[in-house]
Design a protein around this nucleic acid. Structure first.
Length: 575
RNA sequence: CGGGAUGUGGCGCAGUUGGUAGCGCACUUCGCUUGGGACGAAGGGGUCGCACGUUCGAAUCGUGUCAUCCCGACCA
């Protein structure tokens, strides 16, 4: 491709509305252009990158025995009503009506459609297992799209779905996908970590996410997930799912006797601990949440944080948030109490479910809210002064330097970009939608299903997050839009131009994806653009051509060498 | 859904106490220049997000609305 003809517009400055580096660079280097909030045009360079990622995904999925198909982007509400998700998916599901006022939605995922395909096409255990996948645009009306391609509303995703006759079959399908995913990301030039995670709104039991790890100290805050991992045994999990052995702390408050004392203006644990001159770990805090519109109280040791996803899962909820002050007021009123946030305790709360984290069990002579503003109960003990709630679960957020439950080593934490996930769905959809097959024994059984996603556009953006410098992108070779760019320093130097054209022709003749910068630009412009766009190799033809030498530059490490034109071509062909 | 900020040419921005819009980049033409985003000259392109209002007169003031960005969805 000739740069003079390539449809690309590089910008001298970063766009003002971009925050993370992949967004800034992709816009500035002319790969993408925003059409609306969270919706982007993929310009020719970007589309080449996306196709590269797609093809790697296709090759590995096909090799793993999956078959590609394509499902509709617009889906009828009926299917979603069958699965029960029409009412629970929330506002992220973009709903619309056709001219007959039939309700439809834009596909955010395709469990419902694939389940309908399965129940129509698979009738016997002899047909199983089956794994079907597609690569397609998805639409999720995100609360807050941001970070360019990392969290758009419309994005490209590969989604695969497996059908098996039994759990053992699903386990096998799941493992095959996990292995395919490892290969895919490795081929894309991305180091990923497979971490345990919560199964979220899609539903199901076991799930893992593939995370591209991003350094916390990097200027990029693109990693939206916290990943806890054990450097010793390899345990790793998303913070919404991670478990640990907690750090040893003081749990005996050593208060002489139980009594309610004045603790004015101690609305936070920090203030309270300071006021009483005690460790936060001998305080039992109580927080009010709203899960699917219902109030719940959650109790946890004062030095610890509640993991909302875990708490939500205790109630099999879909939505969770902390209660507002006016809601707390309402609860207090209903219970005949009067306390503001900061002084809440379990005693006397009516018509509200209470969950305690396991951390509170071992507390002795502790401090706890007693539902009186500006007062706390100190020296409390379970069963004597306060009843221990019946529901005790792990609802605690893991912290750095907690101990690994498998080997006892200190856990570490890092930020991660989720580029893929795999779920064991089980029979969630097949049961709800009556998708069954006849088993060996003649029994009709629901399919045991799994689903497996890869964010194609997010993977490309994650690659930029990991591979760039202050001059621009450094594409991994496998997903670069072009392999090499040939740059004659002066377009008016006939010797240089002829050599550039010769090299370019040889590369093209050998099916190398090559660019030649034949624009009537000054050298600086051409070199800057080559770096910005991030082509892995550059062959620069300058004055040294009189000695039959050209400059060969590897963008990944910015190493340059003077070699003969033949050698340069040979190196590219050897890739 | 709350809080904050911003909407002026393709991109980045300026525009004072209201007087009818400017700069850099990009674009077109000519000249000159060619190893890290040169220079000179001449050009083209904007109903100042939109609506209503105040005023002789609004990019500027007021009200509303839409959009975009950031923060919060948060630990009692």
């Amino acid at each position: 491709m000739r740069m003079s003809k390539l449809f690309v517009q590089t910008l001298r400055e970063f766009p003002s509305d971009a925050e993370v580096i992949s967004h800034k660079l992709l816009v500035r280097a002319g790969y993408i252009r925003k059409l609306a909030n969270g919706i982007y045009n993929y310009l020719p360079l970007m589309w080449r990158v996306l196709k590269k990622v797609e093809n790697i995904v296709r090759e590995e999925m096909d090799a793993a025995g999956a078959q590609e198909l394509l499902m509709p982007f617009v889906q009828p509400a009926e299917l979603w009503q069958e699965s029960g998700r029409w009412d629970v998916y929330g506002k992220e599901l973009m709903r619309l009506k056709d001219r007959h006022t039939r309700e439809m939605c834009l596909g955010p995922t395709h469990e419902e459609v694939i389940t309908s395909i399965g129940r129509e096409g698979i009738h016997s255990y002899k047909q199983l297992p089956v794994n079907l996948y597609q690569i397609q645009s998805k639409f999720r009306d995100e609360i807050r799209p941001r970070f360019g391609l990392l969290r758009g509303r419309e994005f490209i995703m590969k989604d695969a779905y497996s059908f098996d006759a039994d759990e053992a079959g699903l386990d096998k399908s799941y493992e095959i996908m996990a292995e395919a995913y490892r290969k895919i990301f490795e081929r894309c030039g991305l180091e990923t970590k497979m971490v345990q995670s919560d199964s979220g709104a899609i539903g199901g039991s076991v799930s893992h996410e593939f995370m591209v790890l991003v350094n916390e100290d990097a200027e990029s805050n693109a990693g939206e997930n916290d990943v806890f991992y054990c450097p010793e045994c390899g345990y790793s999990a998303n913070s919404n799912h991670a478990v640990s052995v907690l750090k040893e702390v003081q749990t005996d408050g050593k208060f002489e006797k139980a009594q309610i004392i004045d603790t004015p203006n101690t609305k936070t644990i920090e203030e309270l601990a300071k006021f009483l001159n005690i460790n936060a770990s001998v305080i039992c805090k109580t927080l009010i949440y709203v899960v699917d519109g219902k109030y719940v109280a959650a109790m946890i040791r004062g030095d610890r944080t509640i993991e909302e996803t875990k708490l939500m899962n205790v109630f099999a909820g879909n939505d969770i948030r902390i209660a507002r002050n006016d809601e707390i007021e309402e609860i207090m009123k209903d219970s005949g109490l009067n306390a503001i946030a900061g002084f809440i305790g379990p005693k006397g709360l009516k018509n509200i479910q209470i969950v305690a984290d396991e951390t509170v069990k071992s507390l002795k002579n502790f401090v706890i809210g007693c539902n009186q503003t500006d007062k706390h109960l100190v020296g409390a003990n379970w069963g004597v002064d306060v009843e221990l709630p019946q529901t005790i679960k792990d609802i605690c957020l893991v912290e750095k330097d907690d101990k690994c439950i498998h080997c006892g080593a200190n856990l570490k934490v890092t930020k991660g970009i989720e580029v893929g996930n795999i779920f064991k769905l089980g029979t969630k959809y097949s049961k709800a939608m009556n998708a069954t097959f006849t088993d060996k024994d003649g029994q009709e059984k629901p399919f045991i299903m799994g689903c497996y996603g890869i964010g194609i556009s997010r993977t490309a953006a994650a690659a930029v997050e990991r591979h760039h410098d202050e001059h621009g992108i450094k594409w991994p070779l496998a997903i670069a839009p072009y392999t090499v760019i040939v740059v004659p320093v002066s377009d008016r130097d006939e010797v240089q131009m002829k050599m550039a054209e010769d090299i370019y022709k040889k590369l093209c003749d050998n099916k190398v994806e090559a660019l030649i910068d034949d624009r009537a630009e000054r050298a600086g412009v051409k070199l800057k653009d080559a770096d910005l766009i991030g082509i892995p190799y550059r062959i620069t033809i300058g004055k040294d051509i009189k000695d039959n030498l050209v400059e060969f530059k590897t963008r990944a490490d910015d190493v340059t060498e003077l070699i003969t034109p033949d050698e340069a071509v040979k190196r590219i062909l050897a890739l």
